[in-house]
Design a binder for these strands. Structure first.
Lengths: 199, 199, 199, 199
DNA sequence: TATGAATGAGGGTTCATTCAT
DNA sequence: GATGAATGAACCCTCATTCAT
């Protein structure tokens, strides 16, 4: 009697829920957004939603993974031989204004949640790790080429650089009149000057 | 005889509540921490707590202001003639380990909240502004002395530098095995190399 | 297969809540009756009750409308050609004792609430208006027939007469030993003598 | 050590509280008005208020008595030889508009409360009784003079007439555009025609 | 007299989740 | 697969009242 379920359609529904969840979480916070909110946003009944995710926490976890994957897609598209700074700020250079940066504010929710939710933390670590491995490779290549200060430990350097990128969405919140392009230029220049070998 | 109002004791109670709130918010999040939780932490009944603060939101707002003031105390203790990098990382250098950085994670909650709560945003802006004004002054002094790249706009540069500092507590969350001192050293060096006039 | 929405069952639940609410409000007052009380009376959890009504206020408003409709059913069953006094006291003559009048005491709650709650006031006005229109018609017909004093303004007369009917449940409260039938007879006679054209 | 308390000042404070309570109850209802509200209105701390009244219920009871005494003062000022209708509507004729009737709306609260609070009911009965005794005397005198229908039982007639007066504040609530003077004239005429002996 | 600190039960309401259909 | 009825614990907040000063 049990009908064979269509895996593609199943996956599509899950994506719809995760997209709705991202929107709601962005506006109301991870704890402020309710399941019924997400249901409305996804045009779905709560009973049905629980068919796809076992709990709200499972939605948060899945959404975190999904979001970080998409966020890092720009970076991961690069190769090890590319310049570290270019790789790192590639996401930033794909945007045109602070408005486009706004959806990244969900990372504040995620860092706050990561501090107390082990699963979320693990997902952040795992996703960051992929980026870190790429950056470490570009740093090593840069050091080999003499473009990057040879005294830097690639492990630590890559981590600090990543935190710098995650910090960018803070700028319009602490200084609402900051110019987007100027700020982006400064961040990029900061990274470049930092990496350059001492004269 | 009517009992005299004791403003000191009143203020002490408010501080006690704010400290309890900070702890709870840090562990459970701004929305995850409940009033009854804060009451237990502050050894106080809910009715009494509302004698001091009109709402949970008022507690969040007051706690934000209080926390940022204390966080920036190290920075604001400096004078305009001090070196920008030294001023900026002074808070970081007053700590000894990632464990001591942990209470700063509340800033993730605050940035998330600032994105949707106007009062919190205004308080973050106002508190950051004080720091920014000092940094701008140190940058200008540095430029006058020739220590700081003259092409930098002090307004934007100070903002980007502050965001960099706020990002530090992310490091142990995305790379749990990072060494505290190494990371701190890298951040400090990054700022110094960035500010130095091009050769 | 998705379960069909059953509007009848939904409506039945709402009626059950309104009936429970009327009982509770009658005994404890509009503000004295709590949602949890009404839930117990209606054998329903609070979460579920809020599935049917958005707020306690919405329950009060719906209950007011429901109650006034049922209260005026007797009156509205009459036709324009009927005698005004007969129409007006028809509700009263359907009862047998002060005990049966007791459920009308909810009108005291409603008048008190109407004085400060615009929605309740509007509902009372709207429901009274239906009765008033009928009474106005019977008065005009009576004046045409010469049964009713031609000098009376039907608008004002009908309103004063309605207030008189609403006042009846006060009688056992201010004079607990009043005889029900005697009082009812006096009210009816008062109306008849009042309406009769001057000799 | 105990200072002799000044009974006049003590009574003045109680009156101040009762006046504040009347205002609050009128606006927010007996249960909707809080002690702290009344304290603010009376410029008094809760601890002090409880020095004068043992409980909120005691305030309600005392306020009921106070209010009804003042409300009936007009009526009780008359003598037994006065015309019943004139006595009854004397309060109404001391007012100029519906606005002045508004403070009488507290009677709706009181009737609602009387239905469930024995003390309040007793006070309403006792206060009404005084008025009733006077009306009964005027009715008997009228019957003796031949001005009043001899078939009426003065006990019941007086009670019904009093309920009619209490009903007047309902009029602007159920028909907001009613003219005050016209309504008052109709009420007065209704009573006169009712009492007059049949031709 | 007079204050305002302090309580804790209970107010209306929302929530994540389960279940019958 | 899909619905919305149903739960009850927990949410923020207010209340009448008491107590130390």
């Amino acid at each position: 009697m049990a009908r064979k379920l269509n895996p593609e359609q199943h996956e599509a529904k899950k994506q719809k829920i995760l997209a709705a969840a991202h929107n709601c979480f962005l506006v109301h916070g991870l704890q402020g957004a309710s399941i019924s909110m997400i249901c409305k946003e996804a045009s779905m009944s709560p009973g049905h939603l629980y068919h796809y995710f076992a709990s709200k926490d499972a939605i948060i976890v899945a959404m975190t993974d999904e979001y970080l994957k998409s966020l890092h897609a720009n970076i991961n598209a690069h190769s090890e031989s590319d310049d570290t700074a270019t790789v790192l700020v590639s996401e930033l250079w794909s945007m045109k204004s602070w408005t486009e940066v706004e959806h990244c504010r969900i990372t504040f929710e995620l860092f706050a949640e990561a501090a107390r939710n082990e699963k979320v933390r693990e997902i952040m670590i795992a996703n960051t790790d992929k980026v870190r491995q790429l950056l470490i490779a570009t740093l090593r290549a840069g050091q080999a080429r003499g473009d990057v200060d040879a005294s830097f430990d690639p492990e630590h350097t890559s981590t600090v650089l990543i935190s710098l990128i995650y910090a960018a969405p803070m700028i319009p919140l602490i200084a609402p009149h900051s110019n987007f392009e100027t700020s982006r230029g400064l961040i990029t220049m900061m990274i470049r000057k930092f990496l350059k070998p001492a004269a």
